[in-house]
Design a protein around this nucleic acid. Structure first.
Length: 316
DNA sequence: AACACGGGGCC
DNA sequence: GGCCCAGTGTT
């Protein structure tokens, strides 16, 4: 008998302290999703038995807004080149930015190296295991701190990423999608659903994320393959449509300052010597926009100018 | 609370 | 061509 079956069998006798049935539903939801995860979990390298907290941390930072399929090869190369925080801390920043490649949001790479340097300086090169210490590191926010605590250390935390938000919005909230930005109410809901024990909380975190990534997807949810379809509030309500569809704005891309920044970074990554602004101008037609991009990159520490005004990636 | 911040793949 | 992705830091 699986855990979920045991829970379902015991449902009639389960104490329902608040009279709403919420405790029972949470328990059944968790147990069913965790059971499903046992057989459905992807075999990702940062989940391997020989994983390190540093490897988990690197994967989490790379996964901030970048899909798994694009992170996996970059993660392998990164871990081979810099297996420990001390290795990353000692690397030339230009190499770090080149290894980051086209993962996007290169400031994350900068912060990841700053993070490694902080780990060396503050924690003797050992990734800390509490949310408070992790949150104090560059590039580590609420989500990543919770994820490292759960996935690297197996301790309780409330891990809420875009997948978990969607799973809870649907199964518990009964709506198609969560609000455009993360709300305090969602945090409270996620906290209420999270199991008490370290091991159960860590399993639920991984399993609920995986359900959102593989089944309860944003675009075309595979409800026919969902282990919790029969207790999903959204399904029970008849799949009402997204109520904030009008408030979701799509990010412009073509012709934007962001694209100009990306173009300059791509040029600097492949250059083996400082690049003159006139050369960069051949790859971006709008001079004012190019100047803004360059100024922004220098401001962010992603590029530097030599005495002749040529651009290059930060050396150290 | 609202913005800025990459890039690629899929419908 | 719009939408989405294991978010964070700043204003």
């Amino acid at each position: 008998m699986t855990v979920a079956e045991a829970v379902r069998g015991a449902r009639g006798s389960t104490v329902d302290s608040d009279g709403t049935g919420a405790a029972v539903r949470h328990e059944e939801l968790r147990a069913t999703v965790v059971d499903w995860f046992e057989g459905a979990a992807r075999d990702l390298p940062w989940r391997a038995a020989d994983r390190t907290p540093y490897g988990v941390l690197v994967s989490e930072v790379m996964l901030q807004q970048t899909p798994v399929v694009r992170v996996e090869p970059a993660w392998h190369a990164w871990m081979e080149q810099w297996p420990t925080p001390a290795d990353l801390a000692a690397a030339p920043t230009a190499e770090v930015l080149r290894a980051w490649g086209r993962l996007g949001y290169p400031r994350r790479a900068l912060r990841l190296q700053e993070c490694a340097r902080a780990v060396v300086e503050r924690h003797g090169g050992v990734v800390p295991g509490t949310e408070e210490e992790l949150r104090a590191l560059p590039g580590i926010g609420e989500y990543t701190a919770a994820a490292v605590v759960a996935f690297a250390f197996g301790r309780r935390s409330v891990v809420v990423d875009t997948n978990v938000r969607r799973v809870l919005a649907r199964t518990v909230g009964g709506v198609a999608l969560p609000a455009p930005s993360y709300t305090a109410a969602e945090r409270a809901q996620a906290t209420a659903v999270a199991p008490e024990s370290d091991a159960d909380a860590a399993r639920w975190a991984a399993a609920s994320m995986e359900l959102g990534a593989l089944v309860c997807t944003a675009r075309a949810p595979r409800c026919g393959a969902c282990p919790v379809a029969d207790l999903c509030a959204w399904r029970r309500a008849g799949y009402p449509p997204d109520a904030h569809a009008d408030r979701r704005r799509t990010q412009a891309w073509t012709g934007t300052d962001r694209q100009a920044r990306g173009r300059v970074m791509a040029h600097l990554r492949q250059a083996d010597a400082p690049v003159d602004r006139a050369v960069l101008a051949t790859s971006w037609p709008d001079a004012a926009q190019l100047d803004r991009a360059i100024a922004g990159l220098v401001e962010d520490g992603l590029a530097e100018q030599d005495e002749a005004g040529r651009l290059h990636l930060p050396l150290a």
